Amino acid sequence: MTVSDPVVESVIATISRSATEIRQGLIGRRGTVDEENPSGETQVEADIWADELLGDRLAGIDGVGQYASEERAEVEDCGGDPAMEDVYAVAVDPLDGSSNLKSNNAMGTIFGVYDAALPARGETLVAAGYILYGPITTMVLATEESVTEYELTGGERTVVDRDVRLPDEPVVYGFGGRVPDWPDDFQEYAREIEQELKLRYGGAMIGDVNQVLTYGGIFGYPGLESRPEGKLRLQFEGNPIGYIVERAGGRSSDGNQSLLSVDPDDLHDRTPVHVGNSELVERLEDRVENRIA
């Protein structure tokens, strides 16, 4: 599938071509550095390296007005105004699940292309996707028209499925955060779900969401007793993943409303994230109090 807008297609092509290089570049960059990202999390060498690689390449695309990353405190001005026609902002989580590097488990790259200056509502996304560095490197790309899965190799992308849809019958679930830190109402909901579905949780949201897209089900990282705002970032994780799942026929929610409807206050705002089959997300909204509403 080729995206009709040449700027958006250039962004997608640049990220997909960089995937093989990023995967290979993880070797030898598994150690932590004496720095934290703007969210206060310890960075690994690969976080910084992948961010610099993607930032340099995406900022060089004519029509990309802003670049923002989970690893950078501020939005980078690339020389264009996203309020202008055919100028976009790109938000990236260069290595989702980079803590999995130490144990050599799955991780990914998440990106969103916004038709608005950052921080922005998810409703302004025109494309979003993620790359999964699993046994096979794959990319799931959502646009206004459809959700497509690709295999990535040698800088090329090969279509696997042109119309990714959540299966009607859900099979798997994965919930983040420490169970003792879950609010009581979420714990009750989780106890119900674990009687119905199979647990799939690997410590990288991309891997867990990909399981949900493949088999149907629900992924959630709730607001916690110690952190009611949740852990995941709206601009870099919540919005792009919510956009993908909604385009695939599912729902996203912060516990009260679609993630795409949330008004951001700051580039690094956090949010509870729940995505999956509509019925499961609706049940969650009925049971769980939104503590950040």
Rank of each mutant, 00 (worst) to 15 (best):
H274S: 07
A68P: 12
S10C: 00
A120D: 06
R30A: 12
G122D: 04
S278K: 11
H274L: 08
L260G: 04
R270F: 05
S278D: 14
Y88W: 13
V113P: 02
V92T: 07
G79T: 06
D34R: 04
R270T: 14
N37Q: 05
E289A: 12
S146D: 14
E246P: 09
T153K: 13
L54S: 03
V64N: 05
A204C: 11
Q187H: 06
G216L: 13
G207A: 14
G108Y: 08
D265P: 00
S16G: 08
A190H: 11
Q257I: 07
L234M: 14
G31F: 03
L58V: 10
V8Q: 02
T143P: 05
F236T: 05
G177W: 00
V262W: 04
G230M: 10
A116D: 15
A83R: 12
D34I: 10
D62P: 03
V273E: 01
T137S: 08
A46R: 00
P240K: 04
L152M: 09
R247S: 12
V113G: 00
V179I: 07
N105Q: 13
S39D: 13
V275W: 04
L267G: 08
A142P: 03
S146Y: 00
L260V: 11
L280Y: 05
D81H: 05
P167E: 04
G203P: 11
G242V: 11
V159I: 15
G40H: 04
A13F: 00
E71W: 03
E9L: 10
T158M: 09
G216P: 12
S4H: 08
A204Q: 04
V126R: 12
P38M: 01
L152D: 04
Q195I: 00
G60W: 06
A89G: 15
C78R: 08
E196F: 00
R165F: 05
A19W: 08
S226P: 13
A91R: 00
I244P: 10
P82F: 06
I15Y: 03
L280Q: 06
E70K: 03
L101N: 01
V64K: 07
G122R: 06
V172A: 07
R162N: 15
T14G: 02
L141G: 04
V160P: 09
V172D: 12
I218L: 15
D5Q: 05
E71Q: 11
T148W: 01
D265C: 02
G97E: 05
V64W: 07
L199P: 10
E192N: 09
E36S: 10
D184N: 11
D5V: 02
E76M: 08
G223W: 10
N256Y: 09
S258K: 01
T137I: 15
M84S: 15
L234T: 11
V273I: 15
Y150S: 03
Y150E: 10
I241G: 10
H274R: 06
P170C: 07
R162H: 11
D269N: 09
G108S: 09
M205S: 14
P135Y: 09
D161S: 10
A127C: 11
I206H: 10
A204W: 00
G249N: 08
Q257G: 03
N100D: 12
E196G: 05
V159M: 07
E149S: 14
T14V: 07
N239G: 09
